[in-house]
């Protein structure tokens, strides 16, 4: 599938995103704002950073759902990912983490997520768990055990200040105005995510495994009669989604530099937004990444508005993505969910 194909088939969606951006601009002009004061290179850079954890989670969740399993536990995986990364960073470094420890912590967190995701996948696929309830349960488990880990380590639900990821500054290129700051003097995690989004898109559409994932979600029997194990494909996709969400949580922590376990924890609905992002992107990894960027931008917008001297109730602005999803689902018809999502599949062998 080429990019033009995608744009052709998703005209409405793309038009929607453009319309939202245009509305923001128009609103800004009506309210007599200095748009350039708000949309700065720094804002875009921060938006991209805010988008990375969401995009990672979205790409994972998308794979699971494409394969026929609705993993709504990604919020829980993110919380685990963030908490594990924080505690690992502390434990590995013995209390004074440096840059290397950050990367080790991200890696360790991904590995721990792998273990959890495998267990979760077994429950969903082998034991045919109710996907909705099991996913919600995972969120609660995360909300409980995430902060619990922090309490065990720091005696508090929040961690002290740890280390965050340094920007990667590419010499020369970073001096290019605007573009340099956005792409060549930013967190390497942003670049990693961008590369990953493209790779995930290519993988899904142009490799045999991508075909299998799509077939497993649309017509598992067709895949089964082609001699490919639907179960194995789904295991792979669900485990991948759990690892990606865990990674998303770890990345979130690596950017923030400390763990917050109060309220809905520092993840605070980003996993849900991730689900929303891939629905918005119509199950296309690139579309999901763009949607994640829009949500990241919305998240950063209020800070931007505040610095420009405009106070907006951020509580309400934060609800935009949720309302957006309802509008998308309603006005632009249904996002086409793969037909076999939620049904467990038993081969008749």
């Amino acid at each position: 599938m080429s990019v033009t194909d995608y744009t052709d088939r998703n005209e409405l969606r793309i038009a929607g995103v453009v319309a939202i951006l245009a509305a923001v601009v128009v609103a800004a002009m009506v309210m007599d704002l200095q748009v350039l004061e708000i949309i700065t290179a720094g804002f875009i850079e921060r938006s991209l950073q805010a988008a990375t954890p969401i995009a990672l989670t979205a790409i994972g969740g998308l794979y699971a759902e494409k394969s026929g399993v609705f993993n709504i536990g990604v919020e829980g995986f993110m919380i685990f990912g963030a908490a594990t990364a924080a505690t690992m960073m502390w434990v590995i470094s013995g209390g004074s983490p440096g840059q290397g420890d950050v990367w080790l912590a991200i890696l360790a967190s991904a590995l721990v997520s792998l273990v959890f995701a495998t267990i979760f996948a077994v429950l969903l696929i082998r034991y045919e768990a109710d996907q909705i309830v099991a996913g919600l349960a995972l969120w609660f488990i995360g909300l409980g055990f995430g902060p619990f880990m922090a309490i065990l380590v720091w005696d508090s639900r929040n961690s002290p200040s740890l280390e965050s990821v340094n920007d990667l500054t590419v010499p020369v290129l970073s001096d290019v105005p605007v573009v340099g700051q956005i792409f060549f003097d930013t967190s390497p995690l942003v670049l990693f995510t961008a590369v990953l989004a493209v790779a995930a898109w290519k993988f899904l559409n142009d490799t045999r495994y991508g075909y299998w994932i799509q077939a497993a979600g649309e017509n598992p029997e067709a895949l089964d009669t082609a001699g490919i194990s639907v179960t194995r494909v789904r295991y792979a996709a669900v485990i991948f989604s759990g690892v990606m969400a865990g990674l998303g949580g770890a990345v979130l922590l690596a950017q923030a530099g400390s763990f917050t376990g109060t309220g809905d924890t520092m993840v605070s609905g980003r996993g849900w937004i991730g689900i929303v992002a891939y629905l918005f992107g119509n199950y296309n990894p690139l579309g999901a990444a763009v949607a994640a960027l829009v949500f990241g931008g919305l998240d950063m917008l209020q800070i931007q508005l505040q610095t420009a001297g405009i106070s907006v109730p951020n509580r309400l602005v934060n609800l935009f993505p949720y309302a957006g999803v309802i509008v998308v689902l309603t006005v632009w018809g249904t996002t086409r969910t793969p037909s076999a999502v939620g049904e467990s599949y038993e081969s008749e062998e």
């Binding site: 799509q214 077939a215 649309e218 017509n219 067709a222 895949l223 009669t225 082609a226 793969p338 037909s339």
Partner: peptide, 12 residues
Amino acid sequence: MIHQHFQLVETM
């Protein structure tokens, strides 16, 4: 085997 219900993935 060509099944009574076609084993085709409609979106592909």
